[in-house]
Amino acid sequence: MQTKDDSIVVDPSQPDLVINVGKVTFGEENRKKLQKNQRDQEKKKVVRAACALLNSGGGVIHTEMANEDDHPVEMGQDLEQALRELIQSSDVLQAFIECLQQGRHSYIYVKSWSSGPPSEDSCTKPRICSLSSSLYRRSSTSVIRLDPRQALDFLKTQKRNAKHTLRNEESPPSEIPNIIHQNVSESNPAFQVFQSNKIEHGHILPFPESQSVEFKQYSTKCIQEYVRRKIPEYISAFANTEGGYLFIGVDDKRKTVLGCAKEDVDPDSLQRVIAGAISKMPVFHFCSTDARVSYETKVIDVFKKENLYGYLVVVKVEPFCCAVFSEAPISWIVNQKQEIISLNTKEWVAKMMDTDPDLAEGFKSLLISSNIPPCCRPVYFRKVPEPKASIQQHLF
Rank of each mutant, 00 (worst) to 15 (best):
S196P: 00
K298N: 15
L270V: 06
P206Y: 02
R137I: 07
I8Y: 04
E306H: 13
G57W: 02
D5L: 14
L367F: 15
L83F: 06
N20D: 12
E225I: 01
V313M: 10
D5G: 02
P387A: 05
C321R: 12
F247K: 02
L343I: 01
A328C: 12
A50N: 03
V299D: 13
E29Q: 14
Q94F: 07
E85M: 14
G58H: 13
Q195M: 13
T25A: 05
F96I: 08
Q217E: 08
V227R: 01
R39E: 09
S294P: 07
K280F: 02
V92S: 13
N30H: 14
Y226M: 11
K230G: 09
P319D: 04
E296M: 15
A237T: 00
G202I: 00
S331A: 15
Q14N: 05
F194D: 09
Q38N: 15
R127S: 04
W113Q: 04
Q182Y: 13
E120T: 11
C375M: 15
V283C: 08
E296F: 14
T355A: 10
G59S: 06
S370C: 06
K43H: 08
S115W: 09
D252N: 06
E68V: 14
E386C: 04
Q38M: 15
C321K: 11
S139R: 01
S122A: 11
Y311A: 07
F215Q: 01
V9R: 07
S369N: 00
I179S: 04
M1R: 06
E327A: 12
I19R: 07
F325R: 00
Q217F: 08
E170K: 01
K383W: 13
K4H: 07
S185C: 12
F381P: 09
T345W: 02
K32N: 10
D91E: 11
P267F: 04
L146Y: 01
C322P: 00
H285R: 02
S13V: 02
L17A: 06
G116P: 10
E29F: 11
F284Y: 07
L205P: 01
P282H: 03
P173Y: 00
E170M: 08
S119E: 04
P387E: 06
Q158R: 09
F194P: 10
K43F: 07
K23I: 03
K45E: 08
N307G: 13
D290W: 02
Q35I: 14
K44M: 13
I235H: 06
I97H: 06
R292S: 06
D6Y: 13
D40H: 13
E263K: 13
D40Q: 14
L86Q: 05
A261R: 15
K159M: 03
F191P: 09
L308R: 13
L270N: 05
S331K: 12
Q2T: 12
Q14T: 08
K125H: 12
S187M: 08
C99Y: 08
I204Q: 12
I248G: 06
L135M: 05
H203G: 03
I87M: 14
D69A: 13
P12M: 02
Q81P: 00
G249V: 01
A261W: 14
D69V: 04
E339A: 05
K230M: 12
I8P: 08
V46K: 06
N168W: 06
K316T: 04
D153C: 09
K43R: 15
L246R: 04
A151D: 03
Q81H: 05
C99T: 07
I341F: 02
T25H: 07
N55P: 10
N55T: 08
I235C: 03
L166K: 10
